[in-house]
Amino acid sequence: MDIFLQQIINGLVQGSVYSMVALGYTMVYGILGLINFAHGEIVMIGAMVALSVIQLLTGAGFPIFFILLISLMLSMIVCMILGYSMERIAYRPLRNAPRLAPLITAIGLSIVLQTLAMMFWGREYHSFPLLFTNDSVHIAGAVITEVQIIIITVALVMMGGLLILVHRTRLGRAMRAVAENPSAAALMGVNSNSVISITFVLGSALAAIAGIMISANYGIVHYLMGALLGLKAFTAAVLGGIGNLRGAMLGGLLLGLIESLGAGYIGDLSGGFLGSHYQDVFAFFVLIAVLIFRPSGLLGERVAERA
């Protein structure tokens, strides 16, 4: 029971990070129908920038809360600028190009960002400083650390905020209009270019936060961390139904849970044949199974073929 609960907690923590990153994929996909393959790298850059800021400010005697706030702000700003310029440079010129062209520029960007990060921060694993006491809460035999509580809380607040933004505000309405039909939205006076830019900026801000969250949870930062995380988050977005915000949140949480429960129990399930390194296999099998039965993901709208 306590192991089960522990795996649930770990899964929720991991899952909320996936959800935050998945939102970035899903927002861009919803509006442009484009897989922003470089999104994972933004998460990594966010973590790296935060790391540098924290390292810079730590010795100077500032209160921890202040350091955290500054590093968060700066890493969000850097990521937002990055997201914005990415769209301007690599995606906007290709908006009417064949569907796969922006995929290749995204891959190119991904390589460039990884390499730049490697040149800047080196190839080694950095330990991400512990910002809080290592206090933890015990619930029914399971342990949840303060950092994990904060991660889940922040993620929930952010996701709630995003939903309100998209569904209750003028900007959100414009975003949904552009997603539905860019040219009609333009005719109605929506500046679709700026809406698209804002989408990228918002997704990048979430990515920055997610980057800090995951680094704080594992205590490690590495220049290649974005690739696998991005892949998982994209999987989560598809699992939930890509283009659907609630789907990305649900998909992320589910993927986190599936992974951690899978890793915990896969050995028992397969009679000891498969070890916990099959965790990823488990996640992908679930994804494939879900898509076979629900081809548009869990919450994706069933696109009636328009004949």
Partner: peptide
């Protein structure tokens, strides 16, 4: 610049530039 990094950098840039130049 470390040659390996420079190599990857040039490769990534080449992908981007070629696609921007000839989207098809």
């Amino acid at each position: 610049i470390d040659p390996e990094s420079l190599r990857m950098l040039m490769f990534g840039l080449a992908l981007i530039l070629i696609m921007l130049w000839r989207p098809a």
